[in-house]
Design a protein around this nucleic acid. Structure first.
Ligand code: MN
Ligand code: MN
Ligand code: ZN
Ligand code: ZN
Lengths: 142, 142
DNA sequence: ATTCTTATTGAAACATTTTTTCAATAAGGA
DNA sequence: TCCTTATTGAAAAAATGTTTCAATAAGAAT
């Protein structure tokens, strides 16, 4: 659906900062932290304030248009998220993040955990870490 | 193994700050952020500086004695970790974190992802979110 | 017990990240 | 074009994390 529409339907407005953040995330293959998004904007002469980056990210996350990705270390960045439930596999070399979906297989696993812990499972976070095809190639070339 | 021994074997020393942090984590059922650990220490008259909390957490993580846990929101805390590979299931109500292990089942899933993405998978992060038995009970009682 | 080496601490200054406030602005329905 | 109000940005404040370095204390050696 159109972003403009999606926002307007909820009484929200499509503003320059929101467009800027969306554009930056769209052309970024890797998760970007708020600060990184801000610097990218400044570098490309896009007017935006850091405060707006934070606010916009909160909003876009609320709308499920972006998703938070946890680095191996703990700091997190944001990536564009296609609709629906999915996970990310992240390159430890270049940072590239690729979506993957469709793990019905996990349902069984969750069943077992529920049985074992008595928890009522609601949601989950699954991220894989490794090396993307390009970075693998570069490694062997050395 | 004994903490004292484990440290000394590597030329490291068992100090008061390290004992304090370990004790706090041992009696905490939920992940604690550095600041929370610091405040807990201060509240119980334990002398320690915030800097030492950070340094100690880095060290304990290095030694695989504690583990970083990602909150649903993005901020992370630390929990005591038993040796070996495992994951956490976290209560969205009270924060309690419980370990679980033994997901050989995931191996198949990973195989598929590797095939699909061309990534070389190295490591992964899996956390479940839900409600612990106690918090479920409290919910139905209302 | 005492001494000695040096790993470790804590205070302080610094750096970075995030949040709050509020008057000025501009998005978009009327 | 006008009007309402959602949204912005500047600025200040708050919160979080890091660096530095002289003083301290852990623990091995004597
Ligand atoms: Mn999933
Ligand atoms: Mn695992
Ligand atoms: Zn890569
Ligand atoms: Zn709970």
């Amino acid at each position: 659906m159109d972003l403009q529409l999606k926002l307007n339907q909820q009484g929200l407005r499509l503003t320059r900062p929101r467009r800027v953040v969306m554009n930056i995330l769209q052309s970024a293959p890797m998760p970007l932290a708020p600060q990184a998004i801000f610097k990218t904007a400044v570098n490309s002469q896009e007017e935006i304030s850091l405060v707006s980056v934070y606010r916009t990210l909160d909003l876009l996350e609320e709308l499920s248009l972006v998703r938070k990705v946890h680095g191996h270390d703990g700091c997190h960045g944001y990536v564009l998220a296609s609709p629906g439930h999915h996970h990310h596999i992240i390159c430890q070399q270049c940072g590239r993040a690729v979506e993957f979906t469709g793990i019905g297989d996990l349902a069984d696993v969750f069943e077992r955990i529920v049985a074992e812990t008595g928890f009522d499972v609601d949601d989950h976070l699954l991220q894989l870490y490794g090396f993307c095809p390009q970075c693998q190639k570069e490694k062997t070339e050395k």
